[in-house]
């Protein structure tokens, strides 16, 4: 399966799972919103141009927004993490050329500790920006703090489960460097 086809299927699956599974779970508390869809952005291949990543992130957020009828909310948060992703990869990549010899960010390609940091930081930024935009409507500091912490916790848990369930085998490509 080519990268393009794989990523298109992933795009559709992530949106459908977010809208029809995770958002349909009866709310436990107003702070707990299970977000997983942005993992798609974290899984995009290394060799994608930076403009491409930003644009695809925008599209992903906007598609979700059309389902939830909040145009711009998720798109803004996704664009931000899509733009910041390459910077983080540059900082966190452990050995020279790992982004050339592997396809996409994962535990095996980046090393588990840098990968965990990468996921943690982007999840936090995504949720913080999202809640900040919602906070303009709610105007309560407890809401801002509580929701960022709770949502990030739930997101990290969901990402961990997804990583364990759908373990991505990353092949080492020797000829590419």
């Amino acid at each position: 399966m080519s990268d393009l086809v794989r990523n298109i299927i992933r795009f559709v699956l992530f949106i459908l799972i977010q809208v029809y599974v995770l958002f349909q779970i009866p709310p436990l508390h107003r702070f707990v919103v299970p977000y997983l869809y942005f993992l798609y952005i974290l899984w995009l291949p290394f060799n994608m141009p930076r403009v491409g990543v930003t644009f695809v992130s925008f599209l992903l957020g906007l598609t979700l927004d059309f389902f939830t009828k909040t145009p711009g909310l998720h798109a803004a948060a996704c664009t931000l993490i899509g733009y910041l992703r390459p910077f983080l990869i540059n900082i966190l990549i452990p050995q020279e050329g790992a982004d050339k010899s592997y396809k996409s960010p994962s535990g095996t390609s980046m090393g588990w500790a840098p990968y965990a940091t990468y996921v943690l930081i982007l999840t936090f930024i995504h949720n913080f920006y999202l809640v900040l935009l919602e906070w303009l409507d709610v105007k309560s500091f407890v809401f801002l703090l509580g929701k960022v912490v709770a949502t990030t916790g739930v997101s990290l848990l969901l990402i961990m489960i997804t990583e364990l369930l759908f373990f991505r085998k990353e092949k080492f490509r020797t000829n590419s460097v």
Binding site: F55, F58, L62, D65, G72, L73, A75, A76, Y83
Partner: peptide, 12 residues
Amino acid sequence: FLVMQIAALYML
């Protein structure tokens, strides 16, 4: 990035 961000915020 700035253009995309402004577009999103404008919609919002």
